[in-house]
Design a protein around this nucleic acid. Structure first.
Lengths: 128, 128
DNA sequence: GCTTGACCTGGAGTGCACTCCAGCTCCTAC
DNA sequence: GTAGGAGCTGGAGTGCACTCCAGGTCAAGC
């Protein structure tokens, strides 16, 4: 099964431009082409894009993702290095979650204060 | 108690340039000045900067922070609007935490796979 | 056979949040 | 009284991750 770029974009949640951009910067390998020279993404391509999307979502910079992609090409020999990248990133993500959680506390506190100040949710229509 | 810009930067964790930048874009009110025309940040200034930093940390765009700052100037009349901004943002933060958590699962899975593939942490020295 | 729509390329442009710079002033310490 | 360091201003530059564009190709349907 292969997918035209529009379909691939739809399935990955990335834009068509982003798919081409990722290819240009060598984050993904150039996908196969159909008889008319158009990109034909495979399920594997989409799986890799899906994984990349998770890395992006969690804030991994594209530079590091490129490094990871580069290592992937070297096959199993680079598995240790790749694992270390992911472990390192996992730590970053965990730290980020903790950071967000702590800010959430501050936000709760602030909102509680507003609650006390204004009583409740009345009167504040478009009082611009 | 007031603080020179370097001290304010140190205490807020922002850079001197960022402090001046925040002032330029009207995210913070211009602080008082000392006899020599230099900025003299008050404890209140720092508290506001601290709160802004939390909003930034949690990903609130500067545009929205400016809107919040603008509303603050209107005093209590805008409390409802400000509260709503924070509530909305709190939802965003919660969603973001969930998103990160879900990606964390995928990361764990991937790392486990590497563990299985390479046995354990030997041999992968600088095998560039 | 011609319009239409999806796709192609290389390159330029965008928005965000800073960050840096040149050239200046002002206080402090020697 | 002067050298040095902190701070000042307006404006330009940076890095990141896209996003958009002009001008072209290609296959399908009418």
């Amino acid at each position: 099964m292969t997918y035209a770029i529009a379909e691939a974009a739809h399935r990955t949640g990335l834009s068509i431009d982003t798919l081409r951009y990722y290819e240009r910067i060598e984050l993904v390998d150039p996908p196969a082409r159909d008889s008319g020279g158009r990109r034909a993404y495979s399920d594997e391509d989409l799986a890799w894009l899906g994984f990349l999307t998770r890395l992006r979502t969690t804030g991994m910079p594209i530079k590091l993702m490129r490094e990871y992609a580069r290592l992937r090409h070297q096959g199993i020999a680079s598995a240790g290095q790749r694992k270390r990248i992911l472990e390192r990133h996992r730590e970053d993500v965990r730290a980020r979650i903790e950071e967000l959680r702590s800010c959430l506390g501050a936000l709760d506190y602030k909102i509680d204060n507003y609650e006390r100040v204004i009583g409740s949710d009345h009167i504040q229509e478009a009082s611009a």
